[in-house]
Computed example of a mutant assay.
Amino acid sequence: MSPASASADKTERLLNLILALKSARRPVSKQKIRESLPAYAQASSDEAFDRMFERDKDELREMGIPITTTVIDVLFDDEVGYRIDGSETTLPAISFEPDEVAALALAARAWSTASISGAASAGLRKLRLSGVEIDESVAAGAEPRIRTKEPAFEAVHAAVSALQPITFGYRKNDGELTTRHVQPWALKNWHGRWYLTGFDVDRGDERAFRLSRFEGAVRRKGRAGSYAVPSDHVPEVALEAQLPEPEGTAVVRVRHGRGHTLRRHAQRTTELDERWAEIEVPYRRGTTERDVVALGTHAVAVSPPELVDGVRSALLAVARAHPGSPRAGATGATGATGATGTPRSEAPA
């Protein structure tokens, strides 16, 4: 039996035991429990059943589910019964503040893939049925999206959840198409792109893969639950290791409370006034431009000239792509100035 199958059987057995003891109106004897629950009825001997039942009781108690033991017949004090008091395991009514409800509604709208949006919608539906009023109009002005347009996302997400090895075609930086055999560990949205981290079986080492470079179908290659994710695995660390070597230092001005991605790599930070700070970060062509552009008017590219030119070009491209949009107009004017030069009215000299 595979580890995943054994774990599923144990979970089902514990749930059945909880339901049986919680729904019983009076204490249930051990023999009755064995006869009623298939998992116990299939025990090879009385000793095997006793060991299984004792382990399950201990595990439920460790989970905070109290099992009470009561003498069934006062004339036979060795005949005991078991029961779970419903009042000890029933959660109190859940209540939410208006801002918490709005956050839940906003989170449910963030996912655009079918598999995850279904779970989010089901969660909101359960809240409504329990009496929580969901006013989604509160978040009408925001349109969050966690984009998962990569065709490989669904299959990779399923493999990560099931701990199942996969194989796929992968296009390297130089354009070469390779076949990879990977034990998926985690999915991470990083700098606006989706990445898979995991163990590359052929290379015998941890690797990170950008989903947009997957080619063809993602195929399962092995049993679910056949490996474990290292307890010390941090996706961000693996992704940082994939970054190219910096080409020098970039100077960027950012508003207070903004630019956390840039600030995390800051080598020096100078507070300019109550609204702006100037930071020095490693300059990686393409990556640094993208981080600054993503901040819009909340960041100012100061140097090197390649960074300033790259940010300006990106913002002007956005403005040209949306010529009739008021928001694009702001990007082409104030936004472009804010990201590539000092705005006269806001950023300090």
Rank of each mutant, 00 (worst) to 15 (best):
H256K: 14
A108M: 06
A330F: 14
L211G: 08
T261Q: 13
P66K: 01
A217Q: 14
D77A: 11
A301R: 02
E62D: 15
N173F: 11
R180I: 06
A317I: 01
A155E: 02
E274G: 11
V300S: 07
K32C: 05
D200K: 08
L21I: 11
E35V: 07
Q267Y: 03
G204H: 05
T69R: 12
S5E: 11
I65G: 08
G222H: 00
I18G: 07
S23Q: 11
D56M: 00
A155W: 00
A339M: 09
Q164E: 09
V281C: 08
L272W: 02
E54C: 02
R34C: 04
L316F: 08
S137A: 14
H260K: 11
Q31W: 03
V182R: 03
L104F: 07
D135Q: 05
S130H: 09
E97T: 13
G332N: 03
H322T: 06
R61F: 04
I94K: 10
Q242H: 04
S226T: 07
E12R: 14
G332R: 06
S7D: 04
K188V: 05
Y227G: 01
V160H: 01
D73F: 07
W111F: 14
V251W: 12
G335H: 04
V138N: 03
L315A: 08
M52C: 06
A139C: 09
G324M: 04
A39I: 08
I279F: 12
S5K: 13
A208K: 01
P244G: 09
R275F: 09
S121E: 15
S29Q: 09
T148K: 08
A224V: 00
A108V: 05
P305L: 10
E206I: 10
T288G: 04
E176H: 11
P235A: 12
K32Q: 12
V28I: 13
A140T: 05
E54I: 14
E176W: 04
D73G: 00
V300P: 00
A107L: 15
A162M: 04
S87Y: 02
G248H: 01
P184T: 10
V281I: 14
R26Q: 13
L104D: 02
A321C: 02
S112D: 12
Y82P: 03
E306D: 13
E346M: 08
A336Q: 08
T287A: 15
